[in-house]
């Protein structure tokens, strides 16, 4: 397995577009944090409290989640586009081992980049807003939550990419499942409609970063629900990867 991890790491780091996407994602998070907390500070009557400051600092996550999902898609769909997937499968014919290698390397990369980006965004946002009191626990929880959430989004993309195999198709699927349908679901009528909306992909996942509301789910249970969505996409992709011709 270590061989496969080395190989996948070389693949990720040696393509400029991946490195750029990661850098832009991080820059976006920090930039938006500065922008939003800046306007927050200037329009607020009194001091900005810690909760608002943290939420404002991390609002960039709404963009970053799509960037990470796209990157996850590209980890595998770019190999289908170029035909390089055949080279990869000739080298590692046990297909699930290859997919596992991709998942592990992408997860590690995403955890590191997301942690750095989230911490930087929070640092900038908190420096600008200067909240009177700042519970360390809340700050750490925000960084941890954002890191895990963004990585889960990336893995969602990787699962969809494996399933769809086609970059534009998989990115559209990701946007639909992560942005459009969660919004549509909130319009569903009745108690059941509300329940469905709360459990729908990012509506549940964003509970971990405090950017969503729910009556039945807490931050961690919400994130757990999101991980089930991610796992379903990944398992469906894995089953097809095993079964289909390359």
């Amino acid at each position: 397995m270590i061989d496969i991890l080395r190989s996948e790491w070389t693949k990720i780091r040696s393509v400029r577009s991946t490195v750029w996407t990661l850098a832009v994602t991080a820059a976006l998070m920090v930039g938006l944090s500065a922008l939003l907390t800046g306007s927050m500070k200037s329009t607020a009557d009194g001091p900005v409290n810690a909760e608002q400051a943290i939420a404002g600092s991390l609002l960039g996550i709404m963009f970053a989640q799509l960037a990470m999902a796209t990157l996850g898609v590209l980890v595998i769909s770019s190999e289908y586009r170029t035909g390089g997937i055949r080279t990869s499968l000739m080298a590692v014919p046990q297909r699930l081992r290859l997919l596992t290698g991709k998942i592990l390397v992408f997860t590690a990369t995403s955890l590191v980049v997301s942690a750095v980006a989230s911490a930087a965004a929070l640092g900038v946002g908190l420096a600008i807003t200067q909240p009177p009191s700042l519970p360390t626990n809340d700050v750490l929880m925000a960084v941890l939550g954002a890191t895990l959430y963004l990585t889960a989004c990336g893995l969602f993309g990787l699962g969809l990419g494996t399933l769809v195999r086609h970059t534009p198709g998989a990115v559209v699927a990701a946007i639909a499942l992560m942005l459009v349908l969660p919004q549509v679901a909130t319009q569903l009528p009745g108690a059941w409609g509300q329940r469905i909306a709360e459990y729908f992909t990012t509506n549940a996942g964003l509970l971990l970063v405090g950017q969503s509301n729910s009556e039945t789910l807490g931050p961690w249970s919400g994130f757990g629900v999101y991980l089930i969505w991610v796992a379903v996409a990944m398992i469906a992709g894995a089953v097809l990867l095993r079964r289909r011709d390359a």
Binding site: D3, T10, K11, S14, T82, G84, A91
Partner: peptide
């Protein structure tokens, strides 16, 4: 199989390195 089935963004060295690493 198909010589053009490579990721155009990678250098020749890195392309081969990734393949080599996968098989130790």
């Amino acid at each position: 199989l198909d010589a053009k089935a490579v990721h155009g963004g990678r250098s020749a060295h890195n392309h081969l390195l990734a393949i080599a690493q996968s098989n130790g």
